[in-house]
Nucleic acid binder design. Structure first.
Lengths: 201, 201
DNA sequence: GCGCTAACTGGCCGGCCGGTCAATTAGCTG
DNA sequence: CAGCTAATTGACCGGCCGGCCAGTTAGCGC
C-alpha cells in the first residue's frame, strides 16, 4: 500500500506544524520563537505555515486551543469517573491531578506563558472545571466529611496551585537543599492538605 | 541650589534605564521588549543603553540581579527578626511572605519569566533562604510544636509555592467562580496549612 | 583655563524578522 | 484525460531589530 505515501498530505502537514510549534512555544514562549526556526524544525517552508495558519499569532492561538482542549477533556474525564464523594476521593483527585501534570509538562509551561501574557481566554472553560470541583467539595462538606469552614473553591485552588507551581518552577526549586522527589513531595503535601481539610473529630 | 541640576548624571541615568527596563521586562518578558521602545520610555538614546549595559542580554541580567538582591535582602531581614520558634511564628511567616508578594507584584512576574527561561542563577541564593527556613522548621519539630513526619523543606515549599502561584496566576484564577479576595484566600489557606502541620494531640 | 575622561548623541548598518506573491504541481472529480 | 482546487515552493520585500561608531560635550582634576 501507500509505500510512496502521498507527497502531499495537508492534515499531516498541519499536524506536524502544530506539533513542532507547540514544542517550540512551550520551550521558548511566543515572542522568542522565529518562524524560520519553526519551518526548519518542522521540515516545511515558511510560506506553508502562513498558508495553513495565516500568521504567527493565529498559529499561537491554534496551539493554545488544541492544548487546552486536550487538558479540558482529560480533566472532565477525571471528574466524571469520580465516585462517592468522601475524603479518600479528594486525595485520589489530588494524586490524579499531580500525575497528570507530571506526565504533561508541556501543558504546564504553556499555561505559564499564557498566564504571563495575561491571556484570560482559557479561564472560562477552566472556571467550569473549578466550579464543578468546588460543588463536589461543598457536597462533601455538607455530609460532614470535610471541614465546612473553608470556601470550597479555595480548597480546589490550594491543591491546584501547589501542583501547578511544583512543576512550573521545578527547575528552580529542585536545587533547594533537602527537596525530595515528585512522589515524596506529593506525599508530604497530602499529609498537610488532607489533615487540614478533614474535620476535627 | 542645583536648580539647573546636572545635565549629566550617570548614576541617575543608569537607574532610570534599570527602572524602566524592569517595568518592561516584568510586563512583557525578555524577548518581547524592544530596545527602541525602552529607550523611548526611559527618555534615553538607544546608544546610551549600550554604553551603560553593553547589550540587551547584559541589561536583563542587571535587572534580574538587582531585583533578586532586593528580594533576598527583604527575606533575610524577615528571617532575622523572627523570634521564638513555635507554630504562631510559622503562621506569621506565611502571612509576611504572602504580603510581601502582594506588595511586590513585579518580583513575582520577574521570577516567573526567569523560571520559564530555565535560569537557575538565583536558585543558589534562594536555596540559602529555604535552607534556613527548613532548619527553623526542623528545630520546631524537635520541640514537638510541629508534626515531625514531614520533610521540613517541603513545609517551606508548600507555603512558598502556594503564595507564589496565587499571585503569579492571579489574572487566570481571579475569574474562577467563588474565588475570594487575597485576604480571604490567605485565611483559608492558613486554616488548611496550620491544621496540617500541627501535631495530633 | 586646559585637557582628559566618560557621558551622551545621531546616523548608520547588516541581518533577519514576519509576511506576500506568482508560479508549480499533486490529487481529486467527472 | 481534462480541469479545477489547494498544497507547496522559492524568490522577494519593507521594516525594524540589536548593535556600532565617529563625533560632541559636560564635568572634573590640575
Amino acid at each position: 500500500m501507500n509505500q510512496k505515501t502521498q507527497t502531499r498530505d495537508p492534515e499531516l502537514t498541519r499536524a506536524r506544524i502544530l506539533d513542532t510549534a507547540e514544542a517550540l512555544f512551550v520551550e521558548q514562549g511566543f515572542s522568542a520563537v522565529k518562524l524560520s526556526e519553526l519551518a526548519r524544525a518542522a521540515e516545511v517552508t515558511k510560506s506553508l505555515i502562513h498558508h495553513h495558519f495565516g500568521s504567527k499569532e493565529q498559529l499561537w492561538e491554534a496551539v493554545k486551543d488544541r492544548a487546552f482542549e486536550r487538558y479540558f477533556a482529560a480533566q472532565m474525564a477525571m471528574l466524571e469517573e469520580a465516585g462517592e464523594p468522601d475524603a479518600a476521593l479528594l486525595r485520589r483527585s489530588v494524586e490524579a491531578y499531580f500525575h497528570f501534570l507530571r506526565d504533561n509538562p508541556g501543558v504546564v509551561r504553556l499555561f505559564a506563558w499564557t498566564h504571563l501574557e495575561g491571556d484570560s481566554h482559557c479561564s472560562e472553560l477552566d472556571g467550569q472545571l473549578v466550579g464543578a470541583g468546588a460543588e463536589w467539595v461543598r457536597q462533601t462538606q455538607l455530609r460532614g466529611l470535610l471541614r465546612a469552614d473553608i470556601n470550597p473553591t479555595h480548597v480546589i485552588a490550594v491543591f491546584v496551585m501547589t501542583c501547578t507551581q511544583w512543576f512550573e518552577a521545578k527547575g528552580h526549586h529542585q536545587h533547594w537543599p533537602g527537596m525530595g522527589s515528585d512522589e515524596a513531595f506529593l506525599e508530604d503535601f497530602l499529609k498537610i492538605f488532607m489533615e487540614g481539610v478533614t474535620p476535627r473529630e
